[in-house]
Design a protein around this nucleic acid. Structure first.
Lengths: 348, 348
DNA sequence: TAAAAAAATGTGTTCGAGCACATTTTGAAG
DNA sequence: CTTCAAAATGTGCTCGAACACATTTTTTTA
């Protein structure tokens, strides 16, 4: 029942623990005779090094920086901060130092600046919300030069070496939204896709969701559903919505591709029978969910994304575990009935 | 940046590490002078003992037994076995031995027998699927006598000391099913609740789901929805379904309270426009989900339940972490569009 | 065949916490 | 002012892996 140790193996093979160590790690010279003896034992028993002892011996302090938008400016990111705090607490006892860094949302300069600041600190790893495409490529290569491991979360960029990504399949989440709305509306109706708030050109993730959404309906033969898209910054939203409803009289459903769905909910509060679906468990969104103004939310689980991304890095440093190249989280469908089971969710 | 050690504190306080140890663990005699010096340092710095070192020193081997129904007899339990296998692999390197034990589903004697076998092994902890109420109470007290920690998963029994439970809120999951169906059917319709396959008297979890389901509709004022319940063992299902449809002409939806929903799906394959909702990601269920014969599945996440239950025990033994008394998993809503994002889910 | 070089193997220390045991200090009694 | 027990404090070993360094054995070369 007890796990075997290097010492056990040494005794069994009739050699010293140094020799066993050399065989296991292929370091130093070993005679074929000793080698064979040790390998014979290793084949017989299932040796697993005690990871606690290994990690204790290594006894390095690891520094991980997390770079994400300031959650005071965009509350979508607040759960991420919670996840970071939990990870800090959890892993402090293992000599892991985790430090968050914030940049201004939608501000490329701030993004670059923050990354340069982190680069100078020479951490062991960086967990990054790579909101800007071109800039991220440059930045990642800078980190690589200094042998800093880069993991990404939230936004999957089509970078060649999109390794270590934790997030969701956005195309798929668009399809899910489409499928849900399709169940709720008449066979002939207009659906509006609304992208709110961010610079549309850079927001690859909004585009991916739209693609998925349209893809779903394109697969339905002879569909009489019309789909129209609206891009709007937050300030112009009311005007743009009015124009939208004037131009399209038969809008029965709206798919909002961001967490800003509560803005639309408040503007169309008076319009009955418009189904509404959007993203993320912001308090504002949950309120509208509870009074049935929002029908479904799709949960992107930003907290879990960050926590999982950090776990991977920690277990890599401590226990040499492999980091999965792409880790797609489940896409949770939220209604007013199951929303609280997600809000209270613990980290394992 | 580096974590403080006992040695650091000793040096700072001008005492030996033995004295620091005595202060921290309140063991042995310490003069007030030394005590104050050490406490002063402890207040100033944020000492966190290195859990790797602590656990290495303790270096005990822990034995955890998992008791659950044989997955060859009821495939609902197969993912649990997967979770157990993953946990075995994951924690072997930490000196944790996890061993599964299977009993015949619906067989009280087998349940008792298996538990007695485990009891004799005197493990450090047991993770239990407590399918039988009375017997579990007896068995838990037997374990307690021998100081064996008992955790439970899947079925929450209303036992006084329902500690260490990992599972779902079944009442709530019944409400969720009701809410989903309510969106899909006309205002005047009949819904059938079907309990399949197990001994209904013992299956508290099926009752809880029905309660939640009915509770949802009871809250709707002037609801014209009729709800009828059918209990049936698997063999009589076809007959009972025919009787059901003869007696109720306006059935528009069926809520199956177990993973056996695929059985109903196959029987009503020819009947159009009956919405169907049930539990769990069995392959058979997923097939019917994909061809639209099943509309929604509720995911009870049995694999995660077991894995999480085991994680709690392991972290308790290794790192002295508290085990949450009740850990309710999120209740996932599954459609044909998001099902694969759950099937491929990794353990963190 | 002796000396030197190279190869092979063994030994001992480290990581930090925990605890048994050894040593020193204190205080009280004779 | 001793003596001795109790109290207080310090020392050293353990857990298992990792690796530097020491020692032994084998091989090479003069």
């Amino acid at each position: 029942m007890k796990q075997h140790t290097i010492k056990d193996i040494a005794k069994l093979a009739g050699v010293s623990k140094g020799t066993v160590d050399r065989v296991i790690h292929k370091r130093g010279k070993v005679s074929t005779k000793s080698y064979d003896k040790v390998v014979a034992i290793l084949d017989r028993i299932n040796y697993k090094p005690n990871l606690l002892a290994r990690s204790l011996k290594n006894n390095k302090n690891y520094h991980i920086c997390v770079i994400l938008p300031d959650f005071n400016k965009d509350s979508f990111w607040e759960p991420c901060y919670q996840g970071i705090l939990e990870a800090i607490k959890e892993y402090a006892s293992f000599g892991i130092v985790i430090e968050p860094f914030f940049f201004y949302p939608n501000n490329v300069e701030s993004f670059i600046e923050t990354n340069n600041k982190v680069l100078k600190l020479l951490p062991n790893a960086v967990l990054l919300a790579p909101l800007f495409y071109k800039e991220t490529i440059e930045i990642v290569s800078n980190y690589n030069e200094k042998n800093i491991i880069v993991s990404k979360f939230n936004s999957q960029l089509e970078i060649d070496d999109t390794k270590n990504f934790v997030g969701q399949d956005l195309f798929k989440s668009g399809r899910i939204a489409a499928d849900l709305l399709n169940r709720l509306i008449p066979k002939t109706a207009t659906i509006a896709i609304i992208h709110v708030g961010e610079d549309f050109k850079n927001a690859i993730h909004m585009q991916e969701k739209e693609k998925g959404f349209r893809n779903y309906f394109s697969e339905i033969k002879n569909s009489a559903i019309k789909i129209t898209t609206l891009n709007s910054i937050e300030n112009d939203l009311q005007n743009n919505l009015e124009i939208l409803f004037n131009e399209h009289s038969n809008i029965k459903a709206i798919f909002v591709t961001t967490s800003k769905v509560y803005k639309i909910a408040s503007f169309i509060e008076n319009k009955k029978n418009i189904k509404l679906i959007g993203y993320d468990l912001l308090d504002e969104n949950i309120n509208y969910l509870n009074n049935n103004r929002i029908d479904f939310l799709i949960h992107q689980n930003p907290k879990k994304q960050v926590y999982l991304g950090l776990s991977y890095l920690v277990e890599y440093f401590l226990f040499d575990k492999k980091i999965p190249e792409k880790s797609f989280l489940p896409i949770d469908i939220i209604t007013k009935e199951n929303v609280d089971t997600y809000k209270n969710e613990l980290n394992s």
